[in-house]
Simulated scan of single mutants.
Amino acid sequence: MVAPQVEICIYGADVICASCVNLPSSKDTYEWLEAALARKFPNQSFHITYVDIYNPPEDENKQQFSQRVIEEEMFYPVVVINGTVVGEGNPKLKSVYNELEKYGFSSANT
Rank of each mutant, 00 (worst) to 15 (best):
F46N: 09
Q63S: 07
E58D: 13
V51S: 01
M74C: 07
T29E: 11
F46V: 10
V96R: 07
I53D: 01
D59V: 01
P77S: 10
E58Q: 07
Q63R: 14
E73G: 07
V80T: 06
N82S: 07
E58A: 10
Y50I: 05
K94F: 14
Y50N: 03
M74E: 11
L37D: 06
E73W: 12
I70Y: 04
S95V: 10
N55A: 14
K62N: 01
I81R: 04
D52Q: 05
T29C: 13
E72F: 07
F46Q: 08
Y76P: 00
I53C: 03
P42M: 04
S95A: 15
V85M: 02
N90Q: 11
E71C: 10
E34Q: 13
A36M: 08
S45H: 12
E58C: 04
T84K: 10
V96K: 04
Y97K: 08
Q44D: 07
V80D: 06
K40M: 00
G89Y: 13
N55D: 15
L37Q: 05
P56L: 00
Y54K: 12
T29S: 12
L33G: 04
A38P: 00
D52G: 05
R39Q: 04
V85N: 04
Y76H: 11
E88P: 02
S95E: 14
D59K: 02
Q64G: 00
E88G: 08
E73R: 14
V96Y: 06
G87V: 14
E34H: 12
R68K: 14
L33V: 14
N82D: 12
F75W: 15
D59M: 00
E34M: 09
Y97D: 02
E72L: 15
F41K: 02
G89S: 08
Y97Q: 09
G83Y: 02
V69Y: 02
Q44A: 10
P91M: 08
V69F: 07
A35G: 06
V80Q: 03
A35C: 06
E31H: 12
P56G: 03
G89E: 13
P91H: 09
N82G: 02
V79T: 13
K94R: 12
H47E: 12
H47L: 12
K62V: 01
P77T: 12
S66A: 11
R68T: 11
N55Q: 13
Q67L: 10
S45Y: 11
W32A: 08
Q63V: 09
K62Y: 01
F75A: 14
F75T: 10
E72V: 10
E31L: 14
E73F: 10
K62Q: 12
S45E: 15
Q67C: 03
R39G: 01
E34W: 10
Y76G: 05
K94V: 15
K94E: 14
L33H: 09
